[in-house]
Simulated scan of single mutants.
Amino acid sequence: MSRSLRRGALAATAIVFSIASLSACGAGNDAQTLGVRPDNAAVTVDDVKIQNALVITQPTAGAAGPAVVSATVFNNGSAPQTLDSITLAGASSPVKLKAAEGTGPITVPAGGSVVIGGEGNASATIENGREAVKDGGVQELVFKLSQTGDVSLQAFVVPANSYFKEYGPTVIPQPPTASPTATATATPGHGGEASHGATPSGEASPTAGH
């Protein structure tokens, strides 16, 4: 290769690296990149992988109401599995599972996945969530699958704000509405005025003979 060709090749390579570097910087600072949901708890046992596991509570601190478990369950096996239960280790609060469609169990298809949490997806609801978990803590979750058995991991407990709003509880209690206070009113007499029937006391009666 001639000296001039080598110089041209080196110059082209330098331009390609410069463009790639600028593109990487731009991708790292755009709105889509900054809006990526943070990584959360993940675990793999045999053919099952669970990732992005969270316990999501009510959006307002201290508010009563249900919490939910949000996660994605992958099945890399050749046969489907059902998610039989999710339990909170060390807590007595039950977790109610509901498939995205119908009334049957949550099924994780072979070679597929199931999203738990969010509109149109399967759900896992903790009815008395505020009593069972606290924001900012870490809760051990145990997923029981029909073939793999128990799969446990530690999940963060977060309120349904920011990244987690669309995966939070669908039932958000509203504050009670104050009822109007009844006001006592006087009964009007004749002509719309209060009636006077009694004679005022303390006044002297006129004496006959004066």
Rank of each mutant, 00 (worst) to 15 (best):
Q154I: 00
T181S: 13
R37L: 02
A67W: 10
D150I: 00
G191S: 05
I15V: 13
P176M: 00
N75T: 05
G102E: 03
N40I: 01
I172W: 07
N40F: 03
P80Q: 13
Y163S: 07
A12P: 08
G8Q: 13
G197T: 09
P66R: 06
Q58L: 00
S21V: 09
K165Q: 10
F156W: 11
I172L: 12
V95G: 05
C25H: 14
N52L: 15
I15D: 09
A20E: 04
L54F: 06
T103M: 10
A89V: 01
N128S: 06
A208Y: 11
V171W: 02
G28W: 03
A12G: 11
A155L: 07
P175Q: 01
T33G: 11
R130V: 14
G191L: 01
I50P: 03
S70I: 02
S146T: 12
P180C: 05
G191C: 01
S4I: 15
A14G: 14
K98N: 10
K49S: 15
A110C: 04
D84T: 14
A11L: 11
P175S: 05
V114S: 01
T148W: 14
A155K: 02
Q51K: 12
A182C: 05
L153M: 08
A110R: 06
D84H: 04
A12V: 12
P173T: 01
H210N: 12
V43T: 07
T60M: 11
K144R: 15
V36E: 13
I86G: 04
A12E: 01
I15S: 15
V45D: 02
G209I: 02
R37E: 13
P94M: 04
V55M: 08
T60G: 11
G111A: 00
T207I: 08
K165Y: 05
F17R: 06
G8C: 10
L83S: 04
R6F: 09
V142G: 01
Q58S: 00
T13R: 13
H196T: 12
V73Y: 02
E131L: 15
N75Y: 01
S162N: 13
G136C: 06
T82V: 02
A24W: 10
V48L: 13
K96M: 12
G90Q: 02
P188V: 09
G197Q: 09
R130P: 05
L145K: 02
F164V: 03
I86R: 12
N121M: 01
A155S: 06
D39H: 13
G197V: 11
S18T: 13
Q58N: 02
L145D: 02
P105F: 03
L97V: 03
T33S: 09
P94T: 07
L97Y: 00
I56V: 08
A61G: 14
S78E: 10
D39G: 09
A91F: 05
L10S: 14
A67E: 14
G209E: 04
T207V: 07
T177I: 11
L83R: 00
A53K: 03
L5W: 09
V114E: 08
A186L: 13
V16C: 00
P180H: 08
P159H: 07
A198R: 15
G90C: 11
E101Q: 14
T107D: 03
G137K: 15
A178C: 03
S201Y: 06
V158F: 05
G77M: 07
L22N: 14
V114M: 01
V133L: 03
T44R: 10
A184R: 15
N161K: 12
L10T: 06
A110D: 00
G35D: 12
P94R: 08
S92T: 04
